[in-house]
Design a protein around this nucleic acid. Structure first.
Lengths: 241, 241
DNA sequence: TTTTAAAATAAGGCGAGCCTTAAACTGGGC
DNA sequence: GCCCAGTTTAAGGCTCGCCTTATTTTAAAA
């Protein structure tokens, strides 16, 4: 019954399984291992340990999902992570692409009382600087507030949308996106989609930055596009078709 | 040459040696072990490891001190620790006696860039909530600003002073002090000192709190008194004698 | 000088979280 | 229905930071 004080490693596994099981139902062991830069054998071991603690459900050869307990813990860790990102970015003025990694270290050393105090201090922000929702247990009016976000790849040629979230986050990805000027708030229009899962050609709109005065174009691979989630404004002529 | 990414454990040893070698020159191994709740054998082992890395100088049977490198690291960790305490206490509103322990965990997970940003955000505070100086490398006008603090025990009967710092800090001590109303800013007068290293009897002055309306008296053991540092106002009649 | 308490050394062990190599298994595509 | 890539198991090993028990050394007090 003693909810052991879980360490960094276990927390990273939970976060990883959480991210990977968002889209598809189960997180493949190899994907977990890859994301954590660990051998598949080690990942299997650790997943077993987490299963023994009832945090994870593992179906051999299929993949891993979080149990209710595990999901609760993962949500707490993610909330903590995103709150730190808010503080580091909005208050301490650290770089948008840097705060993810910095928060990744802090999140494992943060007492729950600190998380709550931080949340209040920040004014209960609804998302992190990368657009991801900050879950609050008890507030189950989730779907109500958050606008439905679509993967960028779901847009048809000619459609426009506003980038709202990058997910899952990774340092390399964020660095790349900031160079391309592809951040939340940016309006993009799909100019063309290359066949055979080729790159998307985007026209940048929205607030141009000094470094990237609009209008400009960007070619974005499917790999990157899969991490971009947008809010699509329905235009006149579009409807329930 | 690769300044390895030091971990929590090594950092705690450096902090401990730093604290213990403030007063006397060398930190006895047993004292280090006691403070870290570790066996003397383990402490000896770890001190050897730190010595190999050039962070610590160990004289067998005498004790341990920090090298220049070790002292630099310890100062960085202490600065980080105290800045977190400031944020947690002054901004997040967490309890005065709680922030020490909470900061103790964060300090090992904080990137230098975060430390600097935090320092700037807080407005370069000169002390932590417990009155301990926040060192800034490069700012060697240290002695100039900081008023000389005396150990409480150095006061003679009848003398008054203002508590300015608690040092070294520990959770249990801080909890005890907050119960007694003995915090920085509190003015105390020594009413009597029991012989044979007995307790000091103090009269509380300064800002009374609802819980502890002045005037009130407190008996403080030598053990506790050793952690209290005060600023002594010279009164008329006192001088260079 | 003798005694004593602290400190150091030696030896053996433990768990966590990784690693590699090698062999066995299986789901899904051909 | 077969085969392969992805998984899992097995076995052995490594580092870190701890632990205990036992023995030796030493500084400093008596």
């Amino acid at each position: 019954m003693k909810h052991a004080p879980f360490n960094e490693s276990a927390e990273m596994y939970l976060k990883t399984v959480s991210e990977l099981s968002l889209a598809g139902g189960m997180a493949p062991t190899s994907a977990v291992a890859r994301r954590l830069a660990v051998s598949p054998v080690s990942a299997t071991e650790m997943i077993h340990r987490l299963e023994e603690q009832g945090l994870v459900a593992h179906v051999p050869y299929r993949g891993t999902t979080l149990t209710a307990d595990g999901a609760r813990m993962a949500r707490a860790i993610e909330r903590c992570h995103r709150l730190w990102e808010c503080l580091l970015f909005s208050h301490l003025g650290l770089a948008w692409e840097a705060v993810h990694e910095l928060a990744c270290r802090l999140e494992h050393a943060t007492d729950p009382t600190v998380v709550d105090a931080l949340d209040a201090y920040l004014g209960f922000p609804s998302t992190c600087p990368h657009g991801n929702t900050i879950d609050r247990a008890g507030t189950d009016a989730e779907a109500a507030e958050a606008p439905l976000l679509l993967p960028l790849a779901s847009l048809a040629v000619g459609e426009s949308a506003t980038i709202r979230a990058i997910r899952p986050e990774s340092s390399l990805l964020l660095k790349h996106l900031v160079q391309q000027g592809l951040q939340p708030g940016r309006v993009v229009t799909v100019l063309e989609v290359a066949p055979f899962d080729g790159p998307l050609l985007l026209a940048l709109g929205g607030n141009p930055t000094p470094a990237h005065p609009a209008p400009e174009q960007r070619a974005v691979g499917q790999e990157v596009a899969a991490h971009l989630f947008v809010e699509h404004y329905l235009e006149a002529g579009e409807g329930a078709s």
